[in-house]
């Protein structure tokens, strides 16, 4: 059924990506490909993989942006994958029922056995998260490693998506964004985490944490982003003020 669940999912599993920490190493993208091409979502086929012009299906892509100008400019690494939206038009436009949103945890998935390969879902996704597999004739997308996060054979602490488990910088977090008491929700609240293109109304579950404000020579934060420093109080706030002078 491509109609959305009538009741809100019990959980809203998703990712929180810290743009201040991400170093753009692409390890998340590579490990995503590695896990998923051999997992239930696989294969993630490639065309001409060892040739001059390779291309293929990836669930996670890391862009590199330059923000601001002159001495104030900075490089921001920006991993992009499915945001597991609460209002995923990619699901509702699907004519065959292959795309669906799970009512237990909110994960958006594609059933490869019923997908007709019309590609309309990829048109409906504003974020470019879905990638068509030419060789298999079906649409593929991030599964939030649904074949990993519930696998009891894997030790408990490692039951997270492959991208999160591999991030060497600790820039990626996974959890229930529907529970205000979860670690990821607290992180989002403390750092002013935001959703991508909220004006389109897709209500993405994943959140991005903005790059932290930088200090100028004078010591003042020159571009206070949303929620900066909200978590500091008491002694730490005094340390922060003193060191910032």
């Amino acid at each position: 059924m491509t109609s959305l669940p009538t009741t809100p999912p019990e959980k809203k599993l998703g990712l929180v990506i810290d743009l201040d920490i991400c170093v753009g190493c692409h390890a998340c993208a590579v490990n995503c490909k590695e896990w998923n091409t051999g997992g239930e979502a696989g294969p993630l086929t490639d065309k001409d993989p060892y040739g001059a012009d390779p291309e293929g299906v990836w669930f996670n892509r890391v862009h590199t942006y330059e923000a601001g100008s002159g001495a104030d400019s900075r490089t921001v690494y920006f991993p992009r994958s499915c945001l597991h939206c609460e209002e995923p038009a990619c699901v509702t436009v699907c004519p065959s029922g292959a795309s669906y949103k799970r009512d237990t945890d909110g994960i958006v998935l594609v059933n490869y056995d019923t997908c007709i390969g019309c590609k309309l879902c990829s048109w409906a996704c504003p974020y470019g998260a879905r990638e068509y597999d030419q060789a298999e004739g079906v649409m593929k997308k991030c599964t939030l490693c649904v074949d990993r996060i519930y696998d009891e054979e894997i030790e408990e602490g490692r039951r997270v998506p492959a991208c999160v488990s591999t991030c060497p910088a600790g820039a990626r977090h996974f959890g229930d964004l529907g529970d205000p008491g979860s670690d990821v929700s607290k992180l989002v609240a403390g750092r002013g985490g935001y959703e991508l293109m909220p004006e389109l109304g897709y209500k993405p579950v994943n959140r991005y944490l903005p790059p932290r404000a930088r200090k100028t020579e004078a010591g003042a934060a020159n571009d206070a982003g949303p929620g900066q420093g909200a978590e500091l109080s008491g002694f730490l706030a005094w340390v922060d003020r003193t060191l910032s002078r």
Partner: peptide, 12 residues
């Protein structure tokens, strides 16, 4: 990308 407060953003 949600970074309007940083100024213009270009893909590097």
């Amino acid at each position: 990308v949600g970074m309007e407060h940083l100024g213009e953003v270009r893909q590097l």
